[in-house]
Design a binder for these strands. Structure first.
Lengths: 334, 334
DNA sequence: CTGTTAGCGCTTTCAT
DNA sequence: ATGAAAGCGCTAACAG
């Protein structure tokens, strides 16, 4: 019941080579033969075995994408952008979710390596550079997503996270906030560290205080825990503004502040997030945020990969600039 | 620069067959040899070529999952559940996003078929049963996700959408609402039709009116458009409650009502969504919704697939019951 | 334009 | 316990 090129060739009274040609180079075959072979394929329900194709051809038409968290709309937006560019090149994107776990990240890299993917796009958790170098040495183009790395030999598409952190805290200070808390973590994630660095710089310049409330992930749940911790403090010990390392955290903080206790945002505590996901605008209190061009990042990442793999260019590093989006959650207190 | 089993065999002074055995059946090889081969693998940086493995073995260790919309947290939650169960079986899940487009759905099914995936989990858009049957006839187990189908020979994991729609409108009517609007579409999506059917039934029983506002997708954007259309009406022509076919639509409606015009929810219009995604609770007005056990659905789908593929059982159909979650958006007007 | 043929890298009998 | 050898299904020379 398993139909192979051989069966198709038989049914169409041609050789297997010709069948392969109508599959891969139809221009090299006479229209009449194409017709006949196509009909046989249809009739027999032949579907090409990609493992065999790939083994022979030596390369795959899939691109691997490893993200930190599939549940974060920022990353699914990146995935959509990547898919779009891949589709233009008649390739596909396979999505792996590391869930912020180094072990799962490693597992996906290895899996993709076994599959000899055409290229790897990765938003790396740790800097497992040796593993990435090995991949590259094998001929797989690696593009770092949402992340630059000291080693300039990797292409990367990133957003200036230090600049974004700076924007956020500068804005809070400009709204008259003096005691700012940075909510984020773990510090193993570069984006978090960079945003904190930018935040510190802005805090110093503005002469406002910045405390750090560490979270163990960048999720709504972790945000809720941080918000609860904040609510549990005596009012005079609370900050008057929170900068959350991403919108998921910010939404969690918001939920905790407004629902569990009844601290008002922005009157008592102003709140700003990061990523500007679609849901930010629809939050209980519409959330100020730092916008990153997620789809464009994904699109560009595939584009760089394709160019580098095509030998058309050397590794390139693209850096986008983030943008402050002001909404109600950081309004000046009445 | 490409390391194969042959190179490893050479380096370890054994035959390729032995290398293969330490890879796949280490118990059949003496510990000392295993040691030697492993060392060689490590030293040479050998990574097995999965295309070759699969070609020879005849099957893959990947499970394909096709969802309607990766940007909908409901589906990424399903994906997480599926991944979890797959990992237990040392398999992986490849995620395909049909984006509610029949053409992309077909493309992914074909792609997965070419890859000879071990099983297909699909939340089908249209009923492309012939294509799914062909897949199954080739030996690939197909499990329908979030969807039952007349053909009982397919396993499926679904949630009672008719029941869910019923719950939603019954609740609205119980809160005293008389003019209800169902916002959803396109009608090519079964879930939408079923939820509408349940809604109609409840509306009839309660003696309230139900109008349908058709959308062209189940996204925040489409919801916003529907909300704008509602706002544009004279107040006396507006419904006093909206049941949105999913939470994304509901969030869009909410944004349009509250931000573009200033129709108050729930005072002027009550609003209930579907799926109970994490963001629903954090909306401007916390959103009532119909909860579905998303991760469990994904987990169960892989489980059914594995059981059926293992020949351990016949096709099975699991149906979960949805659950009403009441929040502020459907409170009785003051 | 079409047919023949040699592998791609691996797993798996079957001997030894 | 290990080695030798036969393909899995397909593509890409190369010949005709």
């Amino acid at each position: 019941m398993v139909v192979s090129v051989r069966d198709v060739a038989l049914a169409a009274s041609v050789s297997v080579g010709t069948v392969s040609n109508v599959l891969n180079h139809p221009d090299k075959v006479s229209p009449a033969t194409v017709e006949r072979v196509t009909a046989a394929i249809e009739k027999l329900g032949f579907v090409r075995n990609d493992a065999a194709r790939q083994l022979r051809a030596g390369h795959s038409r899939s691109i691997g994408l490893v993200v930190l968290d599939v549940r974060n709309p920022f990353f699914t937006d990146i995935a959509r952008g990547a898919e779009e560019r891949a589709a233009e090149a008649r390739m596909t994107v396979m999505l792996g979710n590391s869930d912020e776990k180094a072990e799962r990240e490693r597992a996906y890299i290895d899996l993709f390596e076994e599959q000899r993917i055409a290229g790897l796009l990765i938003s790396p958790l740790a800097d497992d550079l040796p593993r990435l170098r090995r991949l590259r040495d094998r001929g797989t183009t690696v593009v770092l997503v949402d992340r630059e790395v000291a080693d300039e030999s990797f292409s990367s598409v990133s957003v200036d996270d230090v600049g974004g952190g700076y924007l956020a805290v500068q804005h809070l200070a400009a709204q008259g906030r003096r005691r700012i808390a940075f909510v984020g973590g773990p510090m193993g994630i570069r984006q978090v560290v960079d945003r904190l660095e930018g935040a510190s710089r802005a805090a110093n310049e503005a002469g406002v205080s910045l405390e750090v409330i560490l979270t163990d992930s960048l999720s709504v749940l972790a945000g809720r825990a941080a918000g609860d911790a904040l609510s549990a403090r005596a009012p005079e010990d609370r900050p008057d503004a929170v900068f959350a390392a991403n919108d998921l955290l910010a939404m969690g903080v918001l939920q905790a502040l407004m629902m569990r206790s009844s601290i008002r945002v922005p009157d008592e505590i102003a709140l700003i997030g990061y990523d500007d996901i679609d849901f930010a605008a629809a939050a209980v209190v519409p959330l100020s945020s730092i916008r990153q061009p997620a789809e464009l990042i994904g699109y560009t990442a595939v584009d760089l990969m394709l160019r580098e793999a095509g030998g058309k260019s050397d590794p390139e590093r693209v850096v986008f600039q983030p943008e402050l989006v002001v909404r109600e959650s950081t309004a000046r207190p009445a």
